[in-house]
Amino acid sequence: MVIARIKPIEEILGFISGKKSVLVVGCAGCTAVCLAGGQREVDSLIVDLKDNKGVIFDGYTMERQCEMEFVAELDHLIDGFQAVLSMACGAGVQFVAERFPGMPVFPALDTVFVGANREVGQYQENCRCCGDCQLAYTGGICPVALCAKGIYNGPCGGSRNGKCEVDEKTACAWCQIYERLKDQGRLDQIMNIKKPMKWKNQTQGTLVQRGYEKFQQD
């Protein structure tokens, strides 16, 4: 799931300064689950923003901002507003902006990573969408997202007591990879030199799933 957190309120106020009416748009997808941009957060952001001046705010939360059919629900709502604050991830913000090219659309959140729920309110980064998943030989631990240097033949010399050199509270991914492969009897997986990545996420990503090519052309 995409994980995001709310921007500082001052930054958001800066975006909408001078606007007389603002529509706050929530996303009931990932950012609702990670407690950053669902209906509940739309309501509380409006309360926080209202403190400041005589601006008209309204809120609306759709299932997902990354699906045009849902974004279209705004069509009849948007007139009369001078700005939109989107509480989705960056993909959602862009879809709303694309639907209403004449409308200033601002992000209310910082999209931080693709991660998992540790507990309610606690999330951990797990994937950087490298486009060439390496997890097969790393015991299911991502060297791209969880190693501070994203190296493929780790651990670097910086690990200490199983922690990463950047932070004594953060585990060294490569120490974990080593331990897990050892427990599974699969250390041979990291005995050979892993060749340089052929980066596949360096151009604008588009994807058509197998079997859907013909629909794409319509």
């Binding site: 009931a28 609702a32 689950v33 407690l35 669902g38 939360t61 309110g121």
Partner: peptide, 19 residues
């Protein structure tokens, strides 16, 4: 869901994974 939300009834993920 959208109608519920417009009336203050919605998923709350702080209450658990299914909201």
């Amino acid at each position: 869901r959208t109608i519920c939300r417009a009336n203050g009834v919605y998923e709350d993920f702080s209450e658990g994974p299914s909201g």
